[in-house]
């Protein structure tokens, strides 16, 4: 059962076509990761699924209906989005930022309810930011800042979360921290998580489902073992590598060779 799917989607910017007639369904309740080389169209696909980009042809279906024909506020109660490199408003506190996530649940009549307050507190606690709630976002470290943005998406309280490269520019420890947090959200509250990642090995560790995009079309999808093989990595990334079994986590581990191939 898929809540979100792409139906013969053709996407592009200005005159340049990026993605051609791509159809895709992403499994509910799982962590899905889109991978592919730079410029292959994976981020563009994620943007279209988040209705940031209008398709040239085809549709994005959310719960079986065209996402562009549903009221945006209604969509925002089902689907949240963390874009690439978001910039917080000047001077805003962590709590202030997380509160913005409640926007689709508020209306003229019900401005700020106890439920809103409870969800915000929960999101802060989950992301370990309760002690920093009054601090200004610009004073946080990169990892903390990314957690604050994730907390905002969590406060939006949606069954689906889309994240565009949530670990870029973070050091290794902070990357793990963010991915552990997302895994927790997936396991504990059954949220469907769909994200773009660059690191294949992190994708293998955390994804239930991997989608490999190559040259604007779907190259392969399935479990990490099905998708991350020597042949497919070569096809998708034009990269020589060997794939071995991760001795600790029993997932594929990709060792890139680059120019200096052994033997």
């Amino acid at each position: 059962m898929a809540r979100i799917s792409a139906d013969r989607l053709t996407l592009g910017y200005q005159r340049q076509i990026i993605l051609r007639e791509l159809s895709l369904s992403l499994p509910e309740g799982k962590m899905s990761v889109l991978v592919g080389s730079n410029g292959c169209g994976k981020s563009t696909l994620l943007k279209a699924m988040a209705r940031l980009l209008a398709p040239w042809q085809g549709r994005v279906l959310l719960d079986g209906k065209d996402i562009d024909r549903q009221p945006t506020r209604h969509v925002a109660r089902t689907l949240s989005l963390l874009p690439q490199h978001p910039v917080a408003p000047e001077g805003i506190s962590v709590r202030g930022l997380v509160r913005l996530g409640r926007h689709p649940h508020q209306s003229w009549l019900s401005q700020w309810s106890e439920r809103d307050e409870a969800v915000v507190e929960h999101a802060l606690a989950l992301t370990d930011l309760t002690d920093m709630a009054e601090r200004r976002v610009e004073t946080l470290s990169g990892g903390q800042r990314q957690r604050a943005w994730i907390a905002m998406a969590v406060a939006q309280d949606t069954p689906l979360m889309l994240l565009d490269e949530p670990t870029s520019f973070l050091d290794m420890a902070h990357q793990m921290e963010v991915l552990d947090l997302l895994k927790r959200l997936n396991v504990e509250s059954g949220r469907t998580i769909i994200m773009v990642l660059h690191d294949l090995n992190l994708a293998c560790r955390y994804a239930d489902h991997i989608v490999a995009v190559r040259n604007g079309s779907l190259h392969a999808q399935g479990t990490p073992h099905e998708v991350i093989t020597r042949e497919q990595v070569k096809a998708v990334f034009q990269l020589e590598c060997r794939v071995i079994e991760d001795p600790f986590f029993q997932v594929p581990l990709c060792i890139p060779f680059g120019r200096e191939a052994p033997e």
Partner: peptide
């Protein structure tokens, strides 16, 4: 209130249903 969300950027605002 919508301007508050927009101040976090267009993509964030769309994501939050503005």
């Amino acid at each position: 209130r919508q301007w508050n969300v927009l101040a976090a950027g267009e993509a964030v605002a769309v994501g939050a249903g503005v």
